[in-house]
Design a protein around this nucleic acid. Structure first.
Length: 573
RNA sequence: GGCGUUAUAGCUCAGUUGGUUAGAGCGAACGACUCAUAAUCGUUAGGUCGGUGGUUCAAGUCCACCUAACGCCA
């Protein structure tokens, strides 16, 4: 039995995530976790909300709530939606947890001891009325280049010119509109990533089996221009993890917090601590997943994320772990995804464009979305959601191929033999041929799932379902029954066994449908078919079953048109 | 401006280290079947593999340049 540590990039706390966010990390991570569990391996699957930073503060202010209260509420909302999509996290944590506070401060202390932290005094705009420093993009003013009056301190989005806040004419706070701004000195900490450049480079080079997308992004950051740059890891904010050196104060850094990108990946580890606490386990329980000196030697660690997160996971977070000088478990495989587009443009949280997780579940159950999203996962390049494509995939793959197979075999059996696996006859040449093909395909399916080839796995799974329809069509038990009922019984028996097989194989993609089929077949274990040939004889004569309700309803043209219209504009908050 | 990714049948995509007539699903046409959610199964049609040039006995598959889309960085 292998041990799999699996993490999904942690979604930002600010609002409900859209389907593009979902398919880029949480959903494929869940597919992999469910598959590895089904194969009998020990799995710890973790995710959390990323809660710190200015956007969270502003969203809380807009909602008229204290930021801690806002985050707690939004965490509950995201947790509920994750459950709705059947994301099987062992723990859904929070980057604001006490565990993450302690661990983040611990890492900062270790890095400082190792000489990997540099203190830098820089100048930043301070808003007197707001009583706070303003990040560049929260300063607005008139662009000196084009005259656009809502240019931001980092860039003018009208003429795209890069700006410094001090370039702006009539600068004002984007938060309050206040114009009483001044430039003040402020001290910040920088993580000296550049000091570990060669080590990181060699480490990335050793990962020959990572997706090109992952390594090419990491390589670009390592070698582009002047090479890997040091990054600021602190901010002048109230909401966040206070800057401390382990348990000790950090002179000169009072009132400052760590920058969100520094503490967010550390939450992967802290989350294991939260999990242990929630399970009533001791520290050793989570350390055996994360410390190679405490049992994590045989752990295989896989991370899932969208391409925008790759630099932090290939460079910054590894710098934190390596730089600590402690034996932390490093990632073994990093599966990254491109973006999912929506009907000719990008999904956008800020513009409310596309379909969001809560809206999706109001329209259809999780399995429908899981199937489309995973079978169209943007692995090789960006991919695109269209309603027509979605409708076709749901109707053909789920309703016609899988759903109808379950329906036709159970109903045929009920009408000819009753609601129990029929006795009589035996498997012959046609059965052997089908079993042989299924055996081959199951092996390929497992191989694709092992290597996280998401789209190809979906294709192979569908091909396995088709084997069921092909078989029934070829042997035609409805005809056989008229002349050789014994043989028809054997054919029906294999058909029902195929239904059992499909349920087990489909569980990682379609957990609800899988359960429904197993319940109808009155099977309470879901062991993996290590030997499909043996597996297809498990349902023996006399085993009772129920005919299930329709597994997947079709999406009508009217539904499709209505939804397309409903989602053509912006999401109303 | 620099870098990266992508460009294959009407649509969504596969195409290993270059090697016989470029594949799948959907859609289309035709046929078979009638157990089933008017479902299923089969057959056929459809592509000068973005463009130009090059390397090679041989290129969708390597090289150069060009074009387009998207992204990242500055």
């Amino acid at each position: 039995m292998a041990r799999h540590l699996i993490t999904s990039a942690i979604p930002y706390i600010n609002g409900v995530k859209h389907l593009g966010n979902l398919v880029g990390s949480q959903l494929p991570a869940d597919l992999f976790a469910r598959y590895q569990r089904a194969r009998g391996h020990e799995v710890l699957f973790l995710c959390a909300t990323d809660e710190h930073g200015t956007p969270a503060e502003l969203a809380a202010a807009k909602a008229g709530k204290p930021v801690a209260e806002y985050c707690a509420e939004m965490h509950a909302v995201q947790a509920r939606l994750a459950e709705g999509f059947r994301l099987s996290f062992d723990h859904f944590g929070r980057s604001s947890s006490p565990q993450n506070h302690a661990l983040t401060q611990h890492f900062a202390g270790r890095l400082a001891e190792a000489g990997l932290i540099q203190e830098v005094v820089e100048q930043q705009v301070y808003s007197i009325r707001d009583g706070r420093f303003l990040p560049d993009r929260y300063i607005e003013g008139t662009c000196p280049n084009c005259g656009y009056d809502k240019a931001r301190g980092d860039q003018c989005e009208n003429c795209t010119k890069q700006l410094d806040p001090t370039d702006l004419i009539d600068p004002r706070s984007a938060i309050s509109g206040a114009t009483e701004l001044e430039v003040r000195d402020t001290k910040h900490l920088y993580l000296r990533q550049s000091a570990l450049k060669d080590q990181l480079d060699a480490w990335i080079d050793s990962k020959a089996d990572w997706p090109v997308l992952t390594t090419s992004i990491a390589k670009k950051w390592l070698h582009d221009g002047e090479g890997l740059r040091d990054r600021g890891i602190t901010r002048d904010l109230d909401w966040g993890i206070p800057v401390r050196k382990g348990d000790a104060d950090w002179p000169g850094m009072e009132g400052k917090v760590f920058y969100v990108w520094f503490d967010a990946p550390i939450e992967y580890i802290a989350c294991a601590g939260e999990w242990a606490e929630a399970q009533g386990l001791d520290a050793a329980a989570w350390e055996r997943w994360w410390r190679t000196d405490k049992g994590a030697d045989d752990v295989r660690y896989t991370q899932f994320m969208g391409k925008d997160n790759v630099p932090f996971h290939t460079l910054s977070f590894p710098t934190t772990l390596i730089g600590s000088g402690e034996p932390w478990k490093m990632v073994d495989h990093l599966k990254s995804f491109n973006y999912l587009n929506y009907d000719g443009g990008q999904f956008s949280t800020s513009q409310g464009r596309g379909i969001f997780m809560d809206q999706a579940l109001e329209l259809l159950p999780a399995d429908y979305w899981r199937w489309w999203l995973l079978s169209h996962a943007p692995e090789k390049s960006d991919s695109e959601f269209t309603w027509e494509n979605f409708q076709s995939a749901v109707n053909k793959d789920l309703a016609d191929v899988l759903g109808n197979f379950i329906s036709r075999i159970t109903k045929f059996c009920r009408s000819k033999f009753g609601e129990a696996v029929p006795a009589g006859g035996q498997y012959g040449a046609a059965e052997a041929a089908t079993i042989a093909e299924v055996e081959e395909r199951v092996a390929r399916y497992a191989e694709l799932m092992d290597t996280m080839e998401v789209r190809k796995s979906a294709q192979e799974l569908r091909a396995i379902w088709v084997c069921g329809n092909e078989y029934l069509q070829a042997v035609a038990p409805w005809s056989t029954f008229k002349t050789e009922p014994q043989q028809a019984a054997a054919q029906t028996r294999l058909g029902l066994n195929l239904a059992h097989l499909f349920a087990v194989l489909s569980a990682p993609f379609l957990p609800d449908a899988s359960r429904t089929i197993l319940q109808s077949l009155k099977i309470d274990t879901a062991a993996w078919p290590d030997d499909p040939s043996e597996f297809l004889s498990r349902l023996e004569a006399g085993h009772a079953f129920d005919v299930p309700d329709v597994l997947f309803a079709k999406v009508s043209d009217d539904d499709c048109a209505a939804w397309k219209a409903q989602f053509s504009g912006r999401r109303a908050d």
